[in-house]
């Protein structure tokens, strides 16, 4: 902690791509007219031959990435998450996952990052859909340090991976000694009153809410979930066993995200616990509008998290 500046996670992603090539990783980045979405320019200036732009054709984007991986490259896709998830779903399922190819899918601007552009541009089902595909690892970085760690892990290890990325400026939640471990929860704050579980873009909101609550002597245990598959079920279980109160918060449908996964853990272990899930209401499309207002509407912002924790502690 203590680093006050904020950084766009995509810039960290691209800087890490550059670092990886310098380390000798044979990387190629495939974009679908998404050179600005992916902020790939600094990489492209250094390594123009390592960027392939396939135009507006997501099925082909994933198929070509698979072919490049079969020819020996570490293949990275970088385009908007909603189009990656929905338009190229079958290529992801068969050519990346079922065929177990070495493709790293970066779903950019996930959640409701596109704000006023509306549901065509939201990816609030990406975790749910990726969990439905047998084997793909699913990661979501919460800050610049974790982004670098996750990108390096993805590039250095074989197999299909999906990395849920966000846009906008993100504060630092970790110091540079932090090490991302797949299949491990990251306990950002230890506490005993309530377990607060979040991932990706909302972890910093959850962190701020926990600071607000600290002023009222409410002791929040904050679990950041950078690794959704593999999932540290024991890490989550142990925290809930301790606090017996749990709130999950995600910029994702309440169907099939971290709230659902936590519900599985509670049910399978017959835990006697209070439990509230925050996210986009299941069974309907999200409201559209400025992102902060969407977050406020669904109670997944700092204030909404604060209020929910007060409610669960009553």
């Amino acid at each position: 902690m203590g680093v006050s500046e904020k950084t766009d996670l995509r810039n960290i992603m691209v800087e890490t791509f550059i670092k990886a090539v310098k380390e000798g990783i044979n990387l190629v980045v495939v974009v679908g007219d998404s050179t600005s979405t992916s902020k790939i320019a600094p990489f492209q200036e250094l390594y123009p031959e390592r960027v392939v732009n396939v135009g507006i054709a997501e099925q082909n984007l994933v198929g070509i990435s698979v072919g490049l991986s079969l020819s020996g490259y570490v293949s990275v896709t970088a385009n908007a998450a909603p189009f990656l998830i929905a338009r190229s779903n079958e290529q992801v399922k068969n050519d990346v996952c079922y065929s177990e190819t070495n493709v790293k899918l970066f779903g950019l601007n996930a959640g409701v990052a596109y704000g006023s552009l509306g549901s065509t541009h939201y990816a609030i089902d990406d975790i749910s859909i990726m969990l439905g595909l047998g084997n793909i690892k699913i990661f979501a970085p919460s800050d610049p340090v974790e982004t670098e760690q996750i990108v390096l892990y993805a590039l250095k290890n074989k197999g299909p991976m999906y990395i849920r990325m966000d846009n906008g400026l993100f504060p630092y939640l970790h110091n540079k000694e932090y090490r991302f471990t797949p299949g491990k929860v990251d306990i950002l704050r230890h506490g005993s009153d309530v377990t607060l579980i979040s991932l990706g873009s909302l972890v910093n909101k959850a962190y701020k809410a926990s600071l607000d609550l600290e002023k009222e002597s409410i002791d929040v245990e904050l679990l950041n979930i950078p690794s959704i598959r593999p999932l540290d079920r024991d890490g989550i279980l142990n925290s809930i066993l301790k606090t017996k109160k749990v709130v999950t918060v995600e910029e994702h449908s309440l169907h099939g995200g971290i709230g659902s996964l936590t519900a599985e853990i509670i049910a399978e272990n017959k835990l006697d616990t209070d439990f509230i899930r925050l996210g986009i209401t299941e069974g309907q499309f999200s409201k559209a509008g400025p992102r902060d207002q969407i977050r406020s509407y669904y109670g997944i912002d700092r204030k909404g998290i604060y209020n929910t924790i007060k409610k669960i502690l009553k």
Binding site: G63, G67, L68, S71
Partner: peptide, 13 residues
Amino acid sequence: SVGVGLALGAKLS
């Protein structure tokens, strides 16, 4: 598409 990726891989490398 996958064939295109493989063929492109040959060209790039």
